[in-house]
Amino acid sequence: GACRVSMSMTEIRAGFTAIKANIQARDPIRTLSILSHPHSLHKVKSSDRCCITHHLFNFYVDKVFKHCKTEDSYVNRKISSIANSFLSVRRKLGHCHEQNQCICGQESTEKLKQILANYEGLNVTSAAMKSLGELDILLDWMEKSH
């Protein structure tokens, strides 16, 4: 369904770009992706986009950011900035969901299950750090498809 949510992609991107190298360097596993394999986000049907976006924001807010604390104060502050931006967007997406404009089809449900399985296949810190390092995969997909 359609769901128009304003968000500052530029700010989130800037925050992620500032810590991307640091975060991705903490993820030694090249052979597994949380978001993009085996099924790419880019193959999601347009009708499922709102649902996937909504659930992925829930995923990051509920499961990812809080397990990403590092020893680096600068990195932690940038993660806080991204997490708080995600929290704000998640709230707006929630309103869409409540107004039934964000229906989950079979395909998106499968996709989300796969993402959670990928996530739960690792220990929580590794999974959270890998997911955070894949934020640009989510942002690229959102910009391309929205």
Partner: peptide
């Protein structure tokens, strides 16, 4: 010049 806002 070309300017792309996001990604910057």
């Amino acid at each position: 010049q070309i300017h792309v806002t996001t990604p910057l």
